[in-house]
Design a protein around this nucleic acid. Structure first.
Length: 501
RNA sequence: GGGACGUUAGCUCAGUCGGUAGAGCAGCGGACUUUUAAUCCGUUGGUCGCCAGUUCGAAUCUGGCACGUCCUACCA
């Protein structure tokens, strides 16, 4: 006994073998992958234009259509069949019968498989149950699908496969298509919003010789011709502010940042942010502006400011809360007094009880920040601006005139997550240089996330940065909110995964 | 990094006490000219994640490994 000489690839199975044979047959009989079918109508447009017409009206007007799409459902009943095809807009039913197409075409159709891409021409009509359908007179197989689709009722449910094979997820799951259409629409609305406010959209480098603008571990890469180490950007901030120095007084950029940190339901190594800067504004203006932006995005994308996130209702149309860190702590832990929260030893004691990390060298503001993160952050379900961040944690932000230990900075929290971060920009070049030097000292002391000193940036400030306000908004997290997604992977088309086993 | 749970047909899932593998969908063959996850009859399809161990015998018990999901930590 001899083994078969043809060993199919490992994931080949009987179904794929069968379909390959059908494709072989198609090749033999002509052009297996024709590209001359002219699609003239989309499913959703036909439903919108003719869905309301009666059976009789449709028979009278005799609308000729040409539709194309992937076959998702198939029902064969001897001399007549129904098929449901799906295009970018939606689905429409085809009726194929010996009487309309001739027996040969209908017989060929019976061997078409779910997942095949078809082109059909014919006349619109309504079935006796009232479903708008195409009475097919011409039917062609445009692309043979070799691999079977997931089960037609449940679709693809395995999370890993949804992420790894997003194309299958998109074919099968309406909800997945909805999420990414909302994502696209969200970015479009944001662009329009900034354009309307006379902002200039710019693109700054993704490859940085000095990573800057955030506290994070960068990805390191190498440029061959220059033989130098480069970093994927962790934030565009320093470049955008250089542009404000240059006279582009309102700029924004929507693009990816890369951070070499852990993966989680809220973190992907590459994520999308919008950063924007406007001269002659301060952080208070940014908060008002952000509220307007969020309301507009919700209204234009979802049609309402009221949304449901993981079972809880949220209204972006209500004024956002504004609290200092200590006020936020007290909101959820009213037993703490102002005196206690401003007492270093007391705060350190609380942090110890919570097993939270801190350094004995930390200033009171940083200690309060850690306590806030432990006790309040995750509870900020309704949109809340937390203001007055400690200067040592905000090396690019302008100090408060009333209290130089804090900065004119806020972070916006919604559903317990940081969604945005903004501040009045530090435009004092001497203070900026001093703060860079502090960061370098921290880096030398072992802080991997401390910033590098960017001397050209300081030089830019020395030419004069007008008083400016700047902010970054996490687009992925915003889209999670708008789509009620629990994981950031659900709003990124191709999330980072480990290599396949 | 730590913890919990999971991995069985292309897909969705069962699998009892350890006794040699099941259903539905998809596929193939047949019936059926208005179906709606069409229906009905017949039928093909398996490295039970991988490697060891225990046992007469392992999808099932034990150990290790891989991958995944969730929680947690770092982080936006």
């Amino acid at each position: 006994m001899t083994t078969e000489s043809i060993t199919p690839p490992q994931d080949e199975n009987q179904i794929i073998t069968e379909r390959r044979a059908k494709l072989q047959e198609l090749r033999k009989n002509g052009i297996a992958f024709p590209n001359d079918f002219e699609r003239k109508n989309l499913a959703a447009e036909l439903h919108a234009s003719y869905g309301d017409q009666t059976k009789e009206q449709l028979e009278e007007v005799k609308i000729q259509v040409a539709v194309a799409g992937r076959m998702m459902l198939k029902r064969v009943m001897g001399k007549a069949s129904f098929a449901t095809i799906q295009d970018m807009s939606g689905r429409i039913q085809l009726f194929i019968s010996n009487g309309d197409t001739g027996e040969e075409t209908h017989t060929a159709f019976k061997h078409y498989d779910l997942g095949d891409i078809l082109g059909a021409t014919g006349e619109l009509f309504k079935t006796k149950t009232g479903e708008l359908s195409v009475r097919v007179t011409g039917l062609r197989l445009l692309t043979k699908a070799l691999r079977p689709l997931p089960e037609k009722f449940h679709g693809l449910t395995d999370q890993e496969q949804k992420y790894r094979q997003r194309y299958v997820d998109l074919i099968t799951n309406e909800e997945t298509r909805r999420v990414f259409m909302i994502r696209s629409k969200t970015i479009q609305v944001i662009r329009e919003f900034f354009a309307r406010h006379d902002y200039l959209e710019v693109e700054t480098p993704m490859l940085h010789p000095i990573p800057g603008g955030a506290s994070a571990k960068p990805f390191i890469t190498h440029h061959n011709a220059l033989d130098m180490q480069m970093y994927l950007r962790i934030a565009p901030e320093l470049y955008l502010k250089r542009l404000v120095v240059g006279g582009f007084e309102k700029v924004f950029e929507i693009n990816r940042n890369f951070r070499n940190e852990g993966l989680s339901t809220r973190h992907n190594p590459e994520f999308t942010m919008i950063e924007f800067y406007e001269a002659y504004r301060d952080y208070k203006h940014l908060m008002d502006f952000t509220e307007k932006l969020f309301v507009e995005v919700a209204r234009k994308v979802l049609g309402t400011t009221v949304l449901s996130y993981q079972g809880r209702e949220l209204d972006l149309g209500k004024p956002f809360h504004r609290l200092t860190m200590t006020q936020a702590i007290q909101k959820y832990h009213p037993q703490f007094t102002d005196a206690q929260l401003n007492d270093r030893d007391f705060v350190i004691n609380e942090l110890q009880d919570l097993k939270a990390k801190y350094k004995t060298s930390d200033a009171l503001g940083s200690l309060q920040l850690y306590l806030f993160e432990e006790l309040a952050e995750a509870q900020l379900f309704e949109p809340t601006f937390i203001v007055d961040y400690p200067a040592e944690a905000s090396p690019l932000a302008r100090r408060s005139d009333a209290n130089p230990a804090i900065t004119e900075r806020f972070e916006l929290f919604i559903v317990g997550r940081e969604i945005a971060n903004g501040f009045s920009e530090l435009n004092d070049p001497e203070d900026q240089e001093a703060r860079f030097d502090e960061q370098v000292a921290a880096k030398d002391a072992g802080d991997e996330e401390a910033m590098f000193k960017d001397s050209d940036y300081v030089r830019a400030l020395e030419y004069g940065l007008p008083p400016t306000a700047g902010e970054g908004i996490g687009i992925d997290r915003l889209v999670m909110l708008l789509t009620d997604s629990a994981s950031i992977r659900d709003v990124i088309l191709f999330p980072q995964m480990r290599p396949e086993a």
